[in-house]
Design a protein around this nucleic acid. Structure first.
Lengths: 149, 149
DNA sequence: GGAAAACCGACTAATAAACTAGGAATTAAA
DNA sequence: TTTAATTCCTAGTTTATTAGTCGGTTTTCC
């Protein structure tokens, strides 16, 4: 039930963008340095986020990335599901997977998986980047430069 | 964020025990057959459950396993945590892991992981084997032998 | 034209998951 | 008292996934 680095790094990168890319774009290199993530690896993650429409890019020298939407329009759920796929603990309660398992009608453990799935999605869909930005400002008020996320 | 087969098989096996081992013990082979799980593999899982005090065993011929506690005294959380370890999505919100990460004081994503962790534990701790047993009886009332779980 | 960036696809190392194998110890029943 | 059925234990193996690395191509500012 652990999240992979994709989801963790991806969310950190998105919060970094929310903090630093207000009406400008910033180079991946800077995000990677601040968050201490391999640049090449982060490149792959941000490619997914771009294809999901959460991030937009400017190519060429002085190019970079910025959020494709306002921070309050991007939820943690959007980010995590883009990078990790469904957050359902088992496939049978993943709404994108249509094939029912052979034991569907009699399965009693499914109610457990379904409840977990629902609660997890409820949590991540209720938190936006804007909420995390606020949390960041609270924790770092008065401090010069605090890039940790 | 997927559960491994350990948790899934383990819960199935425990529900199977709740159904079939009322004041008797049953051989692992039967559970493995009914639930279609490799016997040797299930053996390793049930060893963990035994060491966690959720299952008790009788050795030798005609031996087998039974629940160590009443079904309403065993939660899904007990079973899953025994087999999967902590259900926290990242280590920093796992209460058994004491070491704080270097960014602890400024980290803003931790609130997300903490909320997920709390909700998941809330769900699994609120469902007992007795609840699943009831669910089983409801779904299989009137049917001859339905072993699916 | 050169440098700084995003973009792209393939390859690789490390780790974890999901078993498999083979036997030792125990005990009921024949 | 032997035999067969069962739990118990440790180690090995295979497969899949994770978490990267590598080496470029393309685009665009200066």
């Amino acid at each position: 039930m652990k999240l992979s680095t994709k989801g963790r790094y991806g969310l950190k990168a998105m919060v970094d963008l929310a903090i630093h890319s207000q009406d400008k774009h910033i180079a991946l290199r800077h995000i990677a340095e601040r968050q201490d993530i391999s640049e090449h690896y982060l490149e792959q993650l941000i490619a997914v986020l771009r294809k999901s429409g959460l991030v937009k890019s400017v190519r060429g020298a002085q190019g970079g990335y910025s959020l494709a939407l306002a921070p309050d329009e991007i939820t943690v759920g959007d980010i995590l599901r883009a990078l990790e796929g469904s957050l359902a603990p088992v496939a049978c309660v993943d709404e994108n997977v249509t094939e029912e398992c052979s034991e569907w009608d009699f399965c009693v453990t499914r109610v457990v998986w379904k409840e977990i799935s629902d609660k997890v999605n409820e949590v991540v869909d209720s938190i936006t980047l804007s909420d995390l930005l606020e949390e960041y400002n609270k924790k770092n008020s008065g401090k010069e430069y605090m890039y940790y996320i």
